[in-house]
Design a binder for these strands. Sequence first.
DNA 1: ACACGAATCGAAAACGTTTTAGATTATGTA
DNA 2: TACATAATCTAAAACGTTTTCGATTCGTGT
Lengths: 336, 336
Amino acid sequence: MKVSIRDLAAKCGLSVSAVSKALNNYPDISEETRRHVVKTAQEMGYFPNASARTLKTNRSRNIGVLFEPNSPSGMTHPFFSALLESFKAEAENRGYDLTFINPNIQSGMSYLEHCRYRNMDGVAVICTDLRKEEVRTLINSEIPTVIIDSPVPEHASILSENRNGMYALTRLAISMGHKKIAYLHGESSYVTDERIEGYASALRQSDIEIRRDYVIASVFDNPREAQIAFKSAMALPDPPTCILMSDDTTAIAAIQTAKDMHLSVPGDISIGGYDGVRTNLIFTPALTTVHQDTAAMGKTAARELIGLIEFPLENTPRHISVPASLVIGESIGKIG
Amino acid sequence: MKVSIRDLAAKCGLSVSAVSKALNNYPDISEETRRHVVKTAQEMGYFPNASARTLKTNRSRNIGVLFEPNSPSGMTHPFFSALLESFKAEAENRGYDLTFINPNIQSGMSYLEHCRYRNMDGVAVICTDLRKEEVRTLINSEIPTVIIDSPVPEHASILSENRNGMYALTRLAISMGHKKIAYLHGESSYVTDERIEGYASALRQSDIEIRRDYVIASVFDNPREAQIAFKSAMALPDPPTCILMSDDTTAIAAIQTAKDMHLSVPGDISIGGYDGVRTNLIFTPALTTVHQDTAAMGKTAARELIGLIEFPLENTPRHISVPASLVIGESIGKIG
DNA sequence: ACACGAATCGAAAACGTTTTAGATTATGTA
DNA sequence: TACATAATCTAAAACGTTTTCGATTCGTGT
């Protein structure tokens, strides 16, 4: 049933080593026999055994992905699942497989142990709490790593330009005449900090006061919480005319809530989102948001990691920023 | 750095085979030495090498997942990513890892070859076109398989009760007084057929005519297409009073579109969805839909597959149906 | 005729396990 | 005491590769 390199060698009338070399393009095999070997390999349906190869070479062509969304939406989170998808596509194009590496309860292996157990060539940290000790020891191990959406010194990181993205969105609001712009940002994190900075710098640039009551701690990806925060923002003594939400999910929730309150969007209140992944979910008004280029992020993440794996000497871990782009819909409108 | 079983054996003053047996609970090792071995293994941070073990035993404790959503939303599709997540959780609890098995362009391996290459113990087909020849040869191979959301004779299949689910939803509409109920169903498939049957049988039961112009071919998960279909349904000479959409994504689109047309939901038109995965996305009106129990589906799928892997003789492939449940929101209202 | 380098191939060890068969020691039994 | 039996361990082969090193052949120039 399963044809090994021995069978193939026998069929070809060659030694096992010659066949191996032929398949791996060693220079000391004649073109003629190489072609013959490749052809009969095809005919016999031969494929090398990954385990045997890994055992011998210490290379598995396997990438571990640490994907542990802290949000309750887990893998269904549009942004992270989109990231995973593009990462996967590029890795597969380059001949690598992806396997999840997660806390294996019953075996009691740590992340790092799990990676060593499976001889992972590298790991991608896509959505995980980097403060966890277990994650840090993995990152600081001998295994090449790429971290997505969070910068870690001395490590390869792929970042979305959150500062610029948020800056652009805020500037758009300002250009529409808004001066009272609130930001209902997500949980404290590097990403959140960057976005707040972008928001603040846009305001500063236009000499608009940055009001403490307009920068409101809210959450990512939680419509119910967003609804509460939105209402409380609208209940301020001096309510904003434009509210930028933490992401598209909460922005959609905010729009719905506004309609509940018989407020027109953007007539009475302008609303902005962030992510732009499944932005087609909403029509009226079309959501004005910032598109994070998950396709580019996942792809370059895979490239960086594979570069680190295959040419560790030429490549050195670096940080790469991927531009975000403004998506101009109708949910932020002119004022006055 | 990496400690092998040899190192461990040396440390314990035992032979390699004794240590192996001790760790694998062979009966011909004394309790005393077993404890000693386990303890020093712990101390030395020993973990077996998966490749070596797989090479010897032909068991990889690795499950391949075929996840190839035909919809453009791909991995971000809420229903399928939710399925994947619960499947993954259960598999990991049972000590199995998940690796994606997809068309590896550059290596030119088929699905089956890919599985053999990596010595997959089994594979889960989560969201794939089962008509493809490549998929069928994989399913019909010697590798244990579980198929989710599609029944395949002689194979383990995990199904959501689409007939009952759609039946319950339609009955709900009828109980609210609706007689003109349209179904804008998704692309032709087993799932779609089942749902149409559920829809039809509910109507039949109440002696309501099944009108051809009310059963409209539409699509899954595509708001734009849904919008078009919804409008054409409303433009019928005798428009329905209740429209059941193919899923929640399209239902949300329909609600938005209705509002665009200055129709109140459910005042002027009732709208129903299907899936109930990220149903919290919409507030006004709360979506009436059918919840597919992705948690249960993924979990039992993993259990079935692992049962087939570990006890092939005791277990035989079977079909398991997971109940769906009605989620009563406000988008389907009383009529008259 | 000889030597010699280049070209092409093969033998064998090694990777880290598991497992069969056999060896050794201890334990009871007649 | 001697012998079967049980308990515990070891030696070695095997899984399917890769890779080092050495062997063989072949043409070529002297």
